[in-house]
């Protein structure tokens, strides 16, 4: 391949630690891969696994989930819930044929801008290595059998 594949990665951060880590990395002009589009939630505990599925279904090649270190969540216990969901979801995704390396859980405090940036770069390389996911269940269905827009079909 002559042109390098640029993976699309969706990153979910919490408002308190991990978003600040990202912010700090930015203000400190620490370089990291530009592939990650960050979405800020109040807390990683707000992360509904639906968001991750939607990201993959709509074309993401990788998903990053980040929050405060265990014990440091501003809403006390919420990031433990995140952790439980994360492992279960990762197992489920593996069964769906999505490599477990396409989804990453990263704890980062507000002071860990450098770590955050390094991890993102590492993750991006990992996903790049795996190649595009291009989620498209209708791939093998003949064109004439696919509604142009499923919302507008009427026979």
């Amino acid at each position: 391949m002559s042109e390098q594949f640029e993976p699309i990665i969706i990153g979910f951060t919490c408002n308190w630690c991990s978003y600040r880590a990202a912010d700090m990395a930015g203000t400190a002009r620490i370089k990291y891969a530009p592939n990650v589009r960050l979405i800020r939630l109040m807390c990683s505990g707000r992360l509904d696994p639906t968001f991750i599925l939607k990201a993959f279904a709509d074309g993401a090649d990788g998903v990053l989930v980040s929050g405060c270190h265990p014990g440091d969540c501003h809403y006390v216990e919420q990031n433990y819930k995140t952790m439980r969901r994360f492992y279960l979801l990762r197992k489920l995704l593996t069964q769906m044929g999505i490599e477990p390396e396409r989804i990453k859980l990263l704890w980062a405090s507000a002071a860990e801008g450098q770590i955050f940036a390094d991890e993102i770069t590492k993750f991006t390389e990992e996903v790049r290595r795996l190649g595009p996911l291009n989620w498209n269940p209708e791939q093998g269905i003949p064109k004439e059998s696919q509604p142009a827009n499923p919302m507008e079909v009427s026979a």
């Binding site: 599925l53 939607k54 279904a57 489920l92 069964q95 769906m96 044929g97």
Partner: peptide, 27 residues
Amino acid sequence: IPDPVGMFYRFNLAGSLLRASKPAWDT
């Protein structure tokens, strides 16, 4: 929970966001 897809999408796989596993659709 050895079979999460089987337990969580017993009825709903076709109607789910992902709909089918990659080996099934990636021809």
